[in-house]
Amino acid sequence: MARRPTRHTPDTDRTAPPRGARPSKLGPLSAWFRPWRTRDTVVAGLAAGISALLLCHRLLPNPMGIGTLVDSFAPWLGVAVPLVALPALLGRCRAAVLLLVPALIWALVFGTAVPPNGRNEAGGVKVVTQNLYASNSEPKATLGDLSRTGADLVGLQEITSRTRSVATEALRESHPHHVAVGTVGLWSRYRLSDVRAVDLGLGWTRAVRAVAHAPHGKIAVYVAHLPSLRPDLVEQRDRGLRKLATAVAGETVEDVVLLGDLNTATTDRALRSLTRRLPNVAGEVTAGFGFTWPDTFPAVRLDHVLSRGVRVADAEVVDTRGSDHRAVRATLSG
């Protein structure tokens, strides 16, 4: 008798469910209920790491200023959430839901800075601080932009002998009173007195103090420029912050304002040594994050208006031409 030929089953039959098995009621969602995989562990670890950095970045060790750099760019840690979430969702990782934790933490810590304050009060004493930039090729344009803010007190940092002369000439009519020491200066509508340099322990003068005789009373005005936010200069910068804090702590005038490029971010742990003496109210009422550097795409706020004894009615970041920093303007009232 002839042998009956063997019947071959198509490959698709080999993966077919057993006869009588019921199809999954979850359909496409069944992929989310697979056993825990390596990629889930990785995503869960990243979610935990981002959350820890958002909450505890100021506790990181600070060798060579590494902790300071993380502090300075802490708001940008939130970008890591969508960067991790996208591939996690595409890969149907169950752990993707854990990324909601760092997203919520970011919203609670930094989200309150996003809505604009919507205020711009008239009256009071208007102040503005600007790093004029030593290599500024159009200082007249920068000063023109500052004049249009209507500021009564203009604090400038990183001035040179050339830009000092330009500033004096450009602001002669509107701000006839001025003082410049080293690379910082103050131009004022009001009479200035009791001028003195402030020692920041840097070996050269980068801070000045003067009393402005404003209509509502005296204001002690400090203008300062601290060393750059570089790992090799962090120690010098921190020393300068401590020296400034000591100076303003001993200030005898009740109303005090500091206009400066402090090269210290609002989120930097080191700034606390100074804001304990001079609260950063202007930073709190500034619309958005208030980043000032670099000018083309601000990523961090290095420029500040700190004050005590006066109410900060409003504040804003001002885009100016010629400098690599944006300016910060604020209105102070008694």
Rank of each mutant, 00 (worst) to 15 (best):
A299P: 04
V312W: 04
R308L: 12
G322N: 11
A299D: 07
L306Y: 08
V310P: 00
A313E: 04
L306R: 00
D314P: 02
L306A: 08
G322H: 11
A315K: 06
S323I: 01
V318R: 13
V312K: 01
L302I: 04
S307V: 06
T320G: 04
H325V: 07
V318G: 09
D319A: 10
V305S: 07
T296G: 10
A313M: 05
E316G: 00
D314N: 14
A313V: 09
G322R: 05
D319Y: 13
S307G: 10
V310N: 01
P298W: 02
T296F: 15
D303C: 08
V318A: 13
V312I: 15
V317A: 04
R321W: 10
E316Q: 13
D314E: 11
R311K: 14
S323N: 11
V305F: 15
G309K: 02
R308S: 10
V300P: 00
S307I: 02
L306T: 08
D324V: 00
E316K: 11
G309C: 05
A313P: 00
D303G: 04
R301Y: 05
D303R: 00
A299M: 15
R311M: 12
G309M: 07
A315R: 08
F297D: 09
A299T: 14
D324T: 01
A299Y: 10
A299K: 11
G322A: 14
R321D: 11
G322L: 11
G309D: 00
V312R: 01
V300F: 06
G309Y: 06
L302M: 13
A315V: 10
V310L: 14
T296R: 15
R326A: 06
R326L: 15
T320N: 09
V305E: 03
F297T: 08
D319L: 05
D324F: 00
L306P: 01
V318L: 14
H325M: 09
T320I: 15
V300L: 09
H304R: 09
P298V: 04
V310E: 03
G322I: 02
R308K: 13
R308C: 08
V317Y: 08
